[in-house]
């Protein structure tokens, strides 16, 4: 299989409300910036792939609107996934592996602010057994947190510790939406939101976009001094029957990690897409990360969670640290669906 590497990544400011800016206006600056960072233009891109969600935009074929942000004349080769853009990256890798492309542009975007995100996400569930009951994303995550608390596999202190670490790490991330120095005690003193979750256990609602460049080996070496090589990537999904899953575990993450080759690597950084605090603990266990691995130095999704980009952001942050020489081997994870239903795991190395 041909080698491929991430050679550029840019994320917009993570904001609760992007004002009057439309999706194209969110995408255009990050696409321009990532291409300038390696000195290429749209005519150098062999394949463009985006991740977005029609339900968030409230219109069918919403990704077409996003294409206003890239130059599409003369015609380009382009595709789209109705998923987090981490899966758009996967599609681009298929193009590179099969020799169809050498340089690919990936972007993910959304404005979640105009709607009620908790309810919009309900629409991704089983249309006969789940959607008519309107179980919102926070309530479903709370079912998972309670199952873990009941099983004794974590405590509320453990959850608060994840939040405290995220807020602290985000102080060093200028793009973060939520950053603060806080304490476990102060967090546990906050009232419940959807019990057992507190508001800070839930990722914020964020508007924004991210862009990433991935290239085949020769192109990567030509354009980037220290590419972040993708050594393994895999994604797996669990049943849509919520009750049939063991919510305290994530077998799909474990399986994807085995296929991506996480075990035995000298992992020194990790970014895990955990929109809820307890999910970071599940993921860390399933990935088999040792306590010495710095998890989510960016602050993670709890510090800013652009739907359809937050998974790609995990890969982008790991890649950036490798490209800058701050890390040598990283694990990145992206998720989709209720209670970590679908998971993608990637291993990147210098």
């Amino acid at each position: 299989m041909r080698e491929a590497a991430v050679i550029g990544y840019t994320q917009s400011m993570q904001r609760r409300y992007a004002g009057a800016a439309n999706e194209s206006e969110l995408i255009m600056p990050v696409v321009r910036e990532v291409m300038q960072s390696v000195g290429v233009t749209q005519k150098d891109i062999d394949f463009t792939c985006s991740g977005s969600c029609d339900y968030l935009q409230g219109a069918a074929f919403a990704f077409v609107e996003g294409l206003n942000a890239v130059a599409t004349a003369p015609p380009i080769r382009e595709s789209h996934v109705e998923m987090d853009a981490a899966w758009a990256l996967y599609e681009a890798l298929l193009k590179i592996w099969s020799g169809e492309a050498d340089l690919c542009l990936i972007y993910g975007f959304s404005k979640s602010s105009p709607g009620e995100l908790r309810s919009v996400l309900t629409l991704q569930l089983d249309p006969y057994y789940h959607v008519p009951l309107w179980p919102d994303a926070v309530s479903l995550a709370a079912l998972q947190a309670r199952a873990m608390l009941d099983a004794g596999s974590l405590t509320e202190r453990d959850m608060a510790e994840v939040v405290m670490r995220s807020r602290r790490a985000a102080l060093l991330n200028p793009k973060a939406q939520l950053a603060a120095e806080t304490s476990i005690e102060a967090l546990l003193a906050e009232p419940r939101f959807v019990s057992p979750l507190r508001r800070h256990d839930c990722a914020p609602i964020t508007d924004g976009a991210s862009a990433l460049l991935v290239a085949s080996a020769d192109t990567a070496r030509r354009l980037c001094a220290r590419p972040a090589w993708i050594r393994g990537i895999d994604h797996r999904m669990e049943t849509g029957t919520l009750g049939a899953r063991d919510l305290t575990r994530s077998p799909s993450t474990r399986y994807a990690a085995a296929r991506a080759g996480v075990a035995g690597r000298p992992v020194d950084t990790a970014e895990l897409h955990a929109p809820f605090s307890h999910q970071e603990i599940i993921l860390r266990r399933e990935l088999g990360l040792s306590d010495s691995v710095a998890v989510n130095p960016s602050g993670g999704a709890l510090a800013g969670n652009v739907m359809m980009a937050a998974g790609l952001d995990r890969i982008g942050h790991v890649a950036t640290r490798i490209m800058r020489g701050e890390a040598d081997c990283g694990v990145a994870h992206a998720t989709s669906g209720p209670c970590l239903q679908q998971n993608l795991v990637a291993v990147l190395e210098a």
């Binding site: 009620e116 908790r118 309810s119 926070v138 079912l143 057992p196």
Partner: peptide, 15 residues
Amino acid sequence: VTTWSWVAEPISHHL
């Protein structure tokens, strides 16, 4: 009941 979450403040869609 095998697990549960408490919705103290229903949102508009809740039944």
